[in-house]
């Protein structure tokens, strides 16, 4: 499947695309009128298409294959030049967006083909342990007040709450509240599980409660509850082996983003963006203003 999804063509094309876009981006800085009919191709391009090929096929391209790649690249470039000569790229949202989109895909692809090594993964895991945790859990008991059976379930609940907080007994009397088919004692449930049984809002409320004391009333999909969380466990780290599949996924994600960020950083550096004050206030510092390598993966400024 992989082979088919990312055939040679794709990379030849990607190469050409990069070349074309690069050339387009670049023409401002190297504006030599005489270069209009000149197509430059050099060691850099050759190395790039060769490397791309090698990553995909796990071997060096043959001379013949390399020749094919270069020819494709050239044909593509010539067509692109022609198209520009015809003005097909001017003031055309479609072309502009497609170019940008293509560029974005290209950057993502570059990140995707690189396979992480074990040590890279471990390093990533160590650096982001907080992302590879089992979710926190709560154990709690609750007393249910059925709004359909009581004229003022909230008042009744508050009354019982007062009783519970003033009496010494840690547990409510057996006759407080109403029956609910869900157990009154819920153990070791994560937020998902609580939401699945009581509804999302109830789960969120329970996870925000301070353990040890009776609180409420908290509303669920069924009515009102007094709740006492008696055990709260924070999320715990998953061992590396256990989390490995997720680590790979996140690593690739991160990789994609980093490549993109770096790329944009360079782009922002490359161009002189003139913005009036209003815009500047709006977007804040541009990614190009920070040193390369310091870029946070978080979305900042115009980078997105």
């Amino acid at each position: 499947m992989k082979l088919f999804r990312e055939p040679l063509l794709h990379f030849a094309v990607a190469g050409a695309g990069l070349f074309a876009v690069y050339a387009w981006l670049d023409r401002g800085s190297e504006a030599e009128p005489s270069a209009d009919l000149e197509v430059r191709i050099g060691e850099g391009e050759l190395r790039w298409v060769g490397e791309t090929w090698a990553r995909q096929w796990r071997r060096e391209p043959s001379r013949e294959e390399l020749r094919g790649l270069v020819l494709d690249l050239l044909r593509e470039e010539l067509l692109a030049r022609e198209a520009r000569t015809l003005g097909l790229d001017k003031d055309d949202t479609v072309v502009r967006r497609r170019l940008a989109q293509k560029m974005a895909f290209l950057i993502e692809d570059t990140a995707r083909i690189a396979q992480p090594t074990e040590s890279e993964l471990r390093a990533f895991y160590d650096a982001h342990r907080e992302r590879f945790v089992r979710p926190g859990q709560r154990s709690f008991e609750h007393i249910f007040f059925d709004s359909r059976k009581r004229s003022d379930a909230a008042a009744d609940a508050r009354q019982v709450l007062v009783k519970l907080s003033t009496s010494d007994a840690p547990a409510p009397g057996a006759d407080e509240g109403d029956r609910l088919l869900i157990e009154s004692d819920i153990r070791n449930a994560d937020r998902y599980a609580v939401a699945g049984q009581f509804g999302q809002a109830f789960a969120d409320a329970v996870f925000a409660l301070t353990p040890g004391e009776w609180s409420g009333p908290v509303e669920s999909a069924f009515g009102l509850h007094l709740v006492r969380v008696y055990e709260a466990t924070a999320g715990e780290a998953r061992p590396f082996e256990d989390a490995k599949a997720d680590v790979v996924e996140r690593w690739s994600d991160e990789q994609r983003r980093t490549v993109q960020e770096r790329y944009f950083t360079e782009l922002f550096r490359k161009y002189d963006i003139v913005a009036d004050e209003r815009i500047e206030a709006l977007v804040g510092p541009l990614p190009g203003d920070v040193a390369l390598g310091d870029v946070q993966p978080a979305n900042e400024g115009l980078a997105r």
Binding site: S139, E141, P170, A171, P172, A174, E183, S184, D185, R187
Partner: peptide
């Protein structure tokens, strides 16, 4: 059933609760 749950929440729970 007789025991308040907070004293020993695990008692009698070897049947499926959900």
């Amino acid at each position: 059933q007789r025991r308040p749950p907070a004293y020993s929440p695990y008692v009698g729970r070897d049947f499926p609760t959900r």
